[in-house]
Simulated scan of single mutants.
Amino acid sequence: MKNVIAAEMNTASIDLGFDIVEEPLEVGIEAAVYALNETRRHSIHRARLDWLYRDNPDGPATIWVAYEGGTRNIAGMAAVLPRRLLVDRTEVRCWNCSDLSVLEAYRRRGIASALRKQARRAIENGRADLLYGHPNDRAANAHARAGHWSVGTMRRLAKVTCSQPIFEERLPRFAARPAAWVADVLLRIADRRIVPSDSYRMLHQSEAHFDERFDQLFAGQSHHYPVVGVRDAAYLNWRYGTNPLYRSQTVLAYRDDELAGFLIYTIRDGTAHIKDIFPGHDAHLAGSLLSEMVQEARRTGLRSLSFTALEQNPVLAECRRLGFRPRLETSRMFAFVPDDSPLREVVLDEDAWYVTVGDRDV
């Protein structure tokens, strides 16, 4: 892939002899496979990018590739994913900033910022209405230099539900078991009142599948959020049901045989990572879904629960009430909307966004 021939598409020159080309999808995917595998500690498989860049029900990815002038060697790449967003109940075209990668030999030359500026210019030219992204700390600087602003901070909260695996990592086995037994008894006493409300009937699904009930739920509840990503069956089935990276499970809350809310999670290394809860404004419902997860974690011996969301997300308050504690790691969410956009006022309001970790790229 070092000698990919650039298509005659939107090409921008940057300093020090590099060109940025918006590539057709197939060429862009091949370039992304190469660039990501050159810069990641773990292998990036073609199946992941086909799913992420090609199969998205909201549309295919847009991919820019940075080439070294003359040789056409790949120096880096960036991608954005279409995402339907509701802003004041109106569906708008949004881009979710996805992979950004610059090869080691070409770093500290402004390529990452230049790649992200291509997305900003495309937004200014009307190809989408706005964008958002959740970069890591290094990439956050590229977003800032590209003119994207920080919406807020993503916070992670976690709750220990079974202490034995933790003690076994830190103590000899003969000491870990009795210490864990005492700790778990204390945890159960502290959490004895954490039970889901009997207003709801909870249903667990080990395989994520979403149908028209989720369309109806989102249509009926989305008006509570000035800015929210569409969570209908088409999106949820793609994001969680067909995700090749992990298996998602769901907890469904029913009231009078009607779907009232859902929680989506994955299990990794003995921890249930909660990806999404919807709706989140109803504290009674969100608290019941979280309480059900606490009980499920105890039943199945999971060591902990974890949930990450934008710091203004109302579900975080319910997490704290149920004994979730903040963890040190944080990240920033960025966004961009043109100065003359009618969406600008509401999008600039950090309290307007309903965002969970499930709204990130994958």
Rank of each mutant, 00 (worst) to 15 (best):
335 A>Q: 07
128 A>F: 03
161 T>V: 06
181 W>F: 15
27 V>E: 13
226 P>R: 04
268 R>L: 14
139 A>E: 11
33 V>G: 02
66 A>G: 11
295 Q>N: 10
26 E>Y: 00
232 D>A: 03
254 Y>M: 10
17 G>F: 03
108 R>Y: 11
321 R>I: 04
328 L>N: 11
146 A>P: 03
260 A>C: 05
193 R>S: 11
68 E>I: 13
272 A>T: 04
340 D>Q: 11
265 Y>I: 07
112 A>V: 09
303 R>N: 04
276 D>S: 14
73 N>K: 14
231 R>A: 13
241 G>V: 12
171 L>T: 07
328 L>C: 05
145 R>E: 12
124 E>S: 07
91 E>K: 09
360 R>C: 12
101 S>K: 02
85 L>D: 00
49 L>T: 07
312 Q>D: 01
159 K>N: 03
333 M>Q: 13
25 L>C: 02
324 F>T: 12
310 L>T: 03
7 A>G: 06
132 Y>V: 01
289 L>F: 03
70 G>R: 08
85 L>Y: 00
281 H>E: 10
268 R>V: 14
110 G>A: 09
84 R>W: 08
246 Y>H: 04
228 V>G: 01
184 D>N: 15
65 V>W: 09
153 T>Q: 13
245 L>G: 09
157 L>F: 15
286 A>G: 08
336 F>H: 04
107 R>I: 05
316 L>E: 04
154 M>L: 14
73 N>V: 05
234 A>D: 05
222 S>Y: 01
201 R>F: 01
63 I>A: 05
74 I>E: 01
40 R>H: 12
154 M>I: 15
137 D>A: 13
150 S>H: 10
1 M>F: 10
280 G>P: 03
179 A>G: 02
279 P>Q: 13
339 D>N: 12
303 R>C: 01
300 T>V: 08
313 N>V: 04
9 M>H: 12
46 R>V: 14
78 A>Y: 07
181 W>G: 06
255 R>Y: 00
90 T>S: 15
226 P>E: 08
290 L>P: 00
205 Q>E: 14
355 V>L: 13
292 E>C: 09
107 R>W: 08
256 D>Q: 11
292 E>K: 10
167 F>T: 12
15 D>T: 08
126 G>M: 06
221 Q>V: 05
188 R>D: 11
254 Y>F: 15
117 K>D: 00
233 A>Q: 15
206 S>H: 06
338 P>V: 14
139 A>D: 10
331 S>M: 06
285 L>C: 06
256 D>C: 08
309 A>S: 07
311 E>H: 08
135 P>E: 04
247 R>F: 05
31 A>L: 05
129 D>G: 02
3 N>G: 14
288 S>C: 02
342 P>I: 05
206 S>C: 04
138 R>G: 00
336 F>P: 00
326 P>S: 11
305 L>N: 12
170 R>A: 11
51 W>C: 06
330 T>R: 11
27 V>P: 00
38 E>Y: 01
214 F>A: 00
327 R>D: 08
6 A>P: 14
34 Y>S: 02
205 Q>P: 01
199 S>F: 04
121 R>I: 10
315 V>Y: 02
264 I>P: 00
155 R>C: 09
156 R>F: 06
360 R>M: 11
307 F>R: 06
287 G>A: 03
146 A>K: 07
310 L>S: 00
94 C>E: 04
142 A>K: 10
161 T>M: 09
286 A>S: 14
2 K>V: 01
103 L>E: 02
